[in-house]
């Protein structure tokens, strides 16, 4: 697995774009595996931290430092999207399985729109898609920051904007999402 990924990274570096797609697929599988392993433990209060998960994926997939620094940002950026898909996909299946228990997969460590609730990943995903319709850059930045664990600077590198601009987009996007998630009518609009 790891060797395969290394080879794909090399191919990608040499400009083979199909290698990038394969790499994404490999990443996806790997991360889904990690997410599943994390979440299928017996403890009922399992929670996920995207950043920690992404780090784990790196460790497993490829020694991050073997990638040159330019690759690193690209790699991080790619991972963000994959991470989002994996987590949301997992939350969806888990949510379906656990609906009777009334509890979905949640993310800890976030201040939440309503004080006593935890952030619902499916709602966030949906709100983020809504944001993308209005402003794709902002949505992408949220994806990179939240799901990819990229710093402001790394995000800036990935979207080719200045750190200051990224920070501003990020703050506006957060406000927009906070508002969207505070209103249950919005977040659930596709489900009703």
């Amino acid at each position: 697995m790891t060797d395969g990924v290394t080879q794909l990274l090399l191919d990608w570096r040499r400009g083979d774009t199909s290698a990038r797609d394969k790499l994404l697929a490999a990443l996806y599988d790997e991360m889904r595996g990690i997410a599943a392993a994390r979440l299928s433990g017996e403890r009922a209060d399992h929670t996920l931290q995207p950043t920690a998960l992404v780090n784990e994926a790196y460790e497993k997939l490829v020694r991050l430092d073997r990638i040159q620094w330019q690759d690193r940002t690209h790699f991080l950026a790619m991972t963000a999207r994959v991470m989002r898909e994996v987590l949301v996909d997992h939350a969806r299946r888990k949510g379906a399985a656990k609906r009777d228990w009334g509890k979905r997969v949640t993310l800890t460590g976030h201040a939440t729109p309503r004080t006593d609730e935890e952030l619902d990943l499916l709602d966030l995903d949906q709100a983020l898609s809504g944001l993308a319709d209005l402003d794709e850059t902002k949505a992408r930045i949220v994806e990179l920051r939240f799901f990819g664990g990229l710093s402001i600077e790394e995000t800036a590198e990935a979207v080719d904007l200045s750190p200051a601009t990224v920070k501003r987009h990020w703050n506006v996007a957060r406000a927009w999402l906070y508002d969207a998630l505070s209103d249950p009518g919005q977040a659930d609009r596709d489900e009703s």
């Binding site: 920690a52 460590g109 976030h110 920051r145 999402l177 906070y178």
Partner: peptide, 23 residues
């Protein structure tokens, strides 16, 4: 108005460092 209000209440919403604080 809602967006402005959201901004006031926002705090560390979605900020990665929150997760780290929890860790």
């Amino acid at each position: 108005e809602r967006l402005q209000q959201a901004q006031d209440e926002l705090g560390d919403f979605l900020e990665p460092n929150r997760a780290q604080a929890a860790a």
